[in-house]
């Protein structure tokens, strides 16, 4: 019965996790939601139609249904955002735990690199990296990961340093436990919860960064449906077809709100500071 109480106490968490699940399901079952319409091919005769019964979000200048593109766009946005967050988490955790546990020159090198990244407006470097490597979703993901992992590395390092000198860790070392065993059984489980919570709260901002990259033309390539790039296309037709930029933007906004609320509520549940 205890489990039920937790859910009843955290209404925001329940509401927003259901909404997030709905968004993810919509993305997965995009063909069903859109009734089989093609997000890439359009009918040129139907170009730039305002929202109507047939096309509830209107059509773009290629005659493609914007509703279909927005729904399919969720696939690209969600999958790339989750990829970014997962990669940052993995890279940051590994480097942070390594730096914290081994110390010495390993720590010095990793942390100086992290300092370098922090001493710097992230998007500038991400843009440069993505631009230099060429525009694609993959490169945008790499660029954002390259400039964002340091936050997690610092966090993981500080968490490891906290328990590094605990008696039970020393005992494990003295009794001859393998280093890998100590790292996976003691260091990782201690650091992971905090890191996961941080990752959950970062989903929204990572999605915004990816969309910004695509908007500038350094992310998804046309004709793939992606919200940031759709906004870019919509900008050109703003005077004649404002619906082209309103709906993709609304989609980003709604999804980011849901994931931000979800992240915040997870943090509120797990963070004892507020109690």
């Amino acid at each position: 019965m205890k489990k039920k109480n937790v859910f009843l106490q955290n209404k925001t968490f329940v509401i927003f996790s259901v909404l997030a699940a709905l968004i993810i399901l919509t993305a997965i079952f995009a063909p069903l939601v859109t009734g089989g319409a093609d997000p890439v091919k359009g009918v040129l005769a139907d170009a730039l139609l305002p929202p109507s019964k047939e096309h509830i979000f209107g059509t773009d200048k290629m005659g493609r249904d914007i509703f279909t593109r927005v729904i399919y766009g969720a696939r690209v946005s969600l999958s790339s955002t989750f990829a970014v967050v997962a990669l940052i988490l993995i890279v940051g955790t590994i480097t942070g735990i390594t730096a914290g546990y081994f110390g010495g020159w390993v720590d010095a090198v990793i942390m100086r690199i992290a300092d370098m990244m922090l001493a710097f407006p992230g998007l500038v470097l991400a843009l440069a990296v993505a631009g230099i490597m060429g525009a694609s979703i993959k490169n945008a993901i790499i660029a954002i990961v390259a400039v964002s992992w340091t936050k997690y590395a610092r966090l993981a390092r500080s968490l490891v340093l906290k328990i590094r000198n605990c008696d039970y860790v020393s005992a494990a070392v003295v009794t001859g436990s393998k280093t890998s065993h100590i790292l996976f059984r003691y260091m990782l489980p201690n650091a992971l919860p905090t890191l996961l919570v941080t990752a959950a709260t970062d989903i929204g901002s990572m999605m915004l960064e990816l969309a910004a990259m695509s908007f500038l033309g350094f992310g998804a390539l046309p004709p793939a449906p992606e919200w940031g790039y759709m906004l870019n296309e919509g900008r050109a037709c703003m005077q004649t077809a404002p619906w082209m930029m309103i709906f993709p933007g609304l989609a980003i906004f709604v999804v980011v709100v849901v994931f931000n609320m979800l992240g915040d509520s997870i943090r509120d549940i797990l963070d004892p500071r507020d109690e």
Partner: peptide
Amino acid sequence: TFLGCSIPNFWMGLLLML
């Protein structure tokens, strides 16, 4: 402030422009 954090600034810019 919560909504302000979640709104993409390029969309905000486009809406203001519109």
